[in-house]
Design a protein around this nucleic acid. Structure first.
Length: 263
DNA sequence: AATCCCTTCAACCGCCGTCTC
DNA sequence: TGAGACGGCGGTTGAAGGGAT
């Protein structure tokens, strides 16, 4: 990376950064994170961008409390895979490894406390987190009968740029709530400072942008195809060319950004 | 109303495997 | 084939929210 560490931002992401990242993932796909970090002008590392995308911005993410069947599945898969959170996550559509890891920590702490209490009261230890239908076992019927989202070891969020946004648009248009972010911690940031905001607002912005970007990024158009990463490589586009393009896009406002795209 | 404590979860860190040159 | 770059993963931290006192 060309940026030295001292200029790198850390900590919570701002709405503007999120928008910026979404737009660049949209253009270049969710693969070349260092590249995206560079061209987007975000003062973030590629890793940081990837993490933000995977754990928060990805349109396929479920939000909210784990459903009982998901909880059960996590327990069962953990008994099977141990702390292989990404593997577990692959079997839980819409959940990230980070989320599951956090859930497990909380869960296990609770259980440990409960266990401590119960064992101190009686001598009968309880492994209450082990559902009755399962034990520490493989060949678990629940696990094995789950519809596998897993695709050749790729995570559900591993979509790659343009196709991904067809999902995103579907989400927005269908007015569903599968990607509702709890807004408790996110309130409007009006001053452009490190702020709190809701994902709903971000998606509104994206929707607005979508209207102007559509002609270029329509996944079914030839133009869109010309912007996929693979095709960029196979055409006369060079990395430098992309970088220049990307950098020139940076520092534009959302409106300017979209109008440049539709020019 | 104040503050303390617990819970949650976003984000960072460091290591490791894979890829590319 | 070896070195460097990069991406992915698991562990850990710390800020914020919310309930209890």
């Amino acid at each position: 990376m060309g940026q030295d560490d001292e200029t790198m931002r850390k900590g919570p992401w701002t709405e503007h950064e999120d928008l910026q990242l979404i737009l660049y993932v949209r253009m270049f796909g969710d693969r070349r994170w260092d590249f995206i970090a560079n061209v987007s002008g975000l003062k973030r590392t590629g890793k940081s961008c990837r993490l933000r995308w995977v754990n928060y911005l990805h349109p396929g993410l479920k939000r909210g409390k784990m459903a009982p069947h998901e909880e059960r599945l996590v327990l069962e898969l953990h008994s099977k895979f141990g702390n292989r959170w990404s593997r577990i996550a692959r079997k839980l559509p819409g959940r990230t490894d980070n989320e599951i890891k956090n859930y497990w920590r909380t869960h296990m702490r609770k259980k440990a406390q409960e266990k401590k209490k119960t064992t101190s009261r009686s001598q009968s230890p309880s492994l209450s987190y082990c559902s009755s239908s399962s034990s520490i076992c493989t060949n678990n019927p629940v696990v094995d009968s789950m519809p596998m989202i897993e695709t050749k070891e790729r995570s559900f969020y591993d979509t790659g740029g343009v196709e991904m946004f067809t999902i995103m648009k579907g989400k927005n248009n269908s007015n569903n709530n599968s990607f509702k972010t709890p807004t408790t911690r996110f309130s409007e940031s009006t001053d452009g400072q490190e702020g709190h905001y809701s994902m709903d607002e971000i998606w509104k912005d994206i929707d607005l942008l979508d209207d102007s970007i559509k002609p270029v990024f329509d996944p079914y158009s030839e133009l869109t195809a010309s912007l996929t990463w693979d095709s960029c490589l196979s055409t006369s586009w060079t990395m430098d060319g992309q970088e220049e393009f990307g950098k020139s896009m940076f520092s534009l406002t959302s409106k300017e950004f979209s109008s440049r795209l539709t020019d």
